[in-house]
């Protein structure tokens, strides 16, 4: 498949991205670059200076809503990608409402509780929609422990071990690897029609 054919195939696809932090912002940008037709993004948070160590935002965007800035940044890269924006703190009900028509959903939350909510909600109400999870990306090094595996409709990207803490913060390189592995898995699902 050449890039023209890839773009043709991706232009009618919709990818839902739940959370616009380190995973969501980087994954969304990668998917916009390759030509995914529509992205549905949701987050309630504003950009803080310490987010810039890994999230796809700029210094002059500090203090603004992540969803608004991510939408703007995507438009600067590929105006052909439509971005649907939801300024909301997601829960089980809104996850189903917002993402039910997505071809693939990307889980891009930071908190384990929210990751559990989306896995349980999607397994129950959206069992046919592939859900790509980011699990385990704290710290630095050990690139080879990061992997991808499939469990039914779940696709798990990450090392599945390293939880963030004061001494093991999330940083651009490792978060970026997992975010791009999620984007790569989305492409695999959409292009190979898994």
């Amino acid at each position: 498949m050449n890039f023209k054919q890839i773009k043709e195939k991706l232009k009618d696809k919709t990818v839902g991205i739940a959370g616009c932090g380190g995973l969501g912002s980087n994954c969304a940008v990668a998917l916009a670059r390759v030509g995914v037709g529509k992205l549905i993004i949701a987050d309630f948070d504003v950009i803080e200076e310490n987010n810039l160590n890994r999230q796809y935002y700029f210094y002059n965007q500090i203090g603004r809503k992540k969803v608004d800035c991510l939408s703007e940044n995507i438009q600067l890269i590929n105006p052909g990608t439509e971005v649907e924006v939801h300024d909301i703190k997601l829960d089980a009900i809104s996850i189903v409402e917002i993402y039910q028509n997505s071809d693939v959903i990307v889980e891009a939350f930071d908190k384990a509780e929210m990751k559990q909510t989306i896995v349980e909600t999607a397994s129950k109400y959206l069992p046919k929609t592939p859900l790509v999870l980011g699990l385990g990306m704290a710290g630095w090094g050990e690139s080879n422990s990061i992997h991808c595996r499939q469990a039914d409709n779940l696709f798990i990207c990450g090392d599945e071990v390293r939880e963030i803490s004061e001494d093991l913060p999330p940083l651009a390189p490792r978060v970026g690897i997992v975010a791009h592995m999620q984007a790569n898995t989305v492409l695999e699902i959409l292009l190979n029609e898994l």
Partner: peptide, 10 residues
């Protein structure tokens, strides 16, 4: 059997 750890970070 799938046993998936949910780990904070993102």
């Amino acid at each position: 059997v799938q046993i998936i750890h949910l780990i904070s970070g993102g």
